[in-house]
Structures are given as structure tokens and as C-alpha cells.
């Protein structure tokens, strides 16, 4: 267990450091997120009246789209340099690879959210800094990276690669989308946490189920 935790920590550190040195992915995700926000601005007339209700949906879509860019990259280095085998040999159990990658993806998504939230608040003069709202985003991003890491591990080894990831991921994530948008929308509209409790519990349950299943099957994704 100690070994396992150590491997996870090292993996996360390695990926974050690699990302921090190049900042390729973060820059791309951030720019993409802002651009998506602008597209929404013109696609949907965001009048001050409906803005509050739609904000949760828009923020989530922006984060999901940007997150998909990040997920696509999460195994690219290993695949292109052919280090999958080395990675498998380096850890006590392959579930550590899944866990490490999932944590990295989660952290990157949260980092992008941290950048996007103040910008949205600034552009639309509506503060999104609400503990409940942030809790929903944290849970949603976890569910997202839990399912996404497993599927990205497969798609990166296929011929179609980044083309395939959203096609495989979005249907599986549909319940998460529903729960996040409902819960976050309720919170932004001023409902107390108790009212959206069912959705929060649902998100936590989804995260636990998908993480558990992924840990069990990840071995077959990565080991020849």
C-alpha cells in the first residue's frame, strides 16, 4: 500500500511537472475554454434575465470540452515514446497508473475551472464563487476524469485516437452531465444544498462506481 501510494504520487508529480514545463496542454485548454465561452455568448443571447439559469450549463460544457482536450493528451507521451511497458513495470500494481493519471486529469480540469470561474464572473458580472457550486464542479470533474482516463487509455491505442474519445465518453457521461447541470443550476438559483442533495449523492455514487470498475478493468487496457 505504501509502495502504491508512492507510485501514484510520483506519477502525478511526473505528469504535472512535464505539463508545467511545456504548458502546451494548459494553454490550449484555457484558450479553448475562453473561445467556447465566446461562442456561447453569441450563440445564446445571454440576457441578464436568463443568465443565472444558463450559467451552470455553459460553465460545465466549457469545462467538459476543454477537459476532453486534456484527456486526449493524457496518454500521448507514453504511447508516442513507447513507455507503456516501462510504466507497467515501474509500479507495484497497474491500478496505480490509472489512479495517477486520473488524479492528474482531475487536477488539470480543476485548474482550468479555477481560471475560468473568475473570468466568467468578470465578463458577466455574476459571481460564481459559491461553495456549493464549486463542490458540484469538483465532484463532476472527478466523475469525468474517472471515466475519461479509462477510455482515453484505450482510444490512444486505436487508429482514430482523439476522434474516438468523445464518441465513447459522452454517452457514458450523460448521467454526470444531467446531475451537474441540475445541481449547479439549483445552487446558482439560490436553492439550499439540501434541495440538490440527491444529485450530489448521485454524483458521488457515480464516481465511486466508475472508479471501482475502472480500477478492476484498467489492467486489461494497458497490459499486452
Amino acid at each position: 500500500m505504501k509502495d502504491w501510494l508512492h507510485s501514484v504520487r510520483t506519477l502525478v508529480w511526473k505528469d504535472l511537472l512535464q505539463e508545467w514545463r511545456s504548458k502546451d496542454m494548459l494553454t490550449a485548454m484555457f484558450a479553448f475554454a475562453i473561445l467556447t465561452l465566446f461562442i456561447f455568448n453569441y450563440a445564446i443571447e445571454l440576457s441578464p434575465v436568463n443568465r443565472a439559469e444558463i450559467a451552470s450549463g455553459i460553465i460545465w460544457v466549457v469545462i467538459v470540452f476543454a477537459g476532453t482536450l486534456g484527456l486526449n493528451r493524457s496518454f500521448i507521451a507514453e504511447q508516442d515514446q513507447g513507455c507503456f511497458d516501462a510504466l507497467v513495470m515501474a509500479v507495484p500494481d497497474v491500478s496505480a497508473i490509472y489512479f495517477g493519471k486520473m488524479l492528474t486529469n482531475w487536477l488539470v480540469m480543476l485548474f482550468v475551472s479555477v481560471l475560468i470561474l473568475p473570468i466568467y464572473s468578470l465578463l458577466y458580472n455574476q459571481s460564481l464563487f459559491n461553495a456549493g457550486f464549486i463542490l458540484v464542479l469538483v465532484l463532476g470533474a472527478w466523475c469525468y476524469s474517472a471515466a475519461g482516463t479509462l477510455i482515453a487509455g484505450m482510444t490512444v491505442q486505436t487508429r482514430m485516437r482523439d476522434l474516438l474519445l468523445p464518441i465513447l465518453l459522452f454517452p457514458i457521461l450523460m448521467p454526470v452531465n444531467m446531475a451537474v447541470v441540475k445541481a449547479a443550476g439549483g445552487i446558482l438559483a439560490g436553492a439550499p444544498l439540501m434541495d440538490v442533495q440527491a444529485w450530489l449523492v448521485f454524483l458521488a455514487a457515480y464516481g465511486i462506481i466508475v472508479t471501482t470498475v475502472s480500477i478492476m478493468v484498467f489492467e486489461y487496457v494497458i497490459r499486452e
Partner: peptide
């Protein structure tokens, strides 16, 4: 292998989708 993994995770998500909607 990939087909099996995806069939399993896909099937796990079906009841969740139903429940959430």
C-alpha cells in the same frame, strides 16, 4: 480486450443514466 472493457463500463452506465433521468 478493449471491446470487453467498454461493454462492461457501458453496461454499468446504463442503469445510472436511467436513474438520473
Amino acid at each position: 480486450r478493449f471491446g470487453s472493457v467498454y461493454a462492461i463500463i457501458g453496461f454499468a452506465s446504463v442503469p445510472l443514466t436511467f436513474f438520473s433521468s
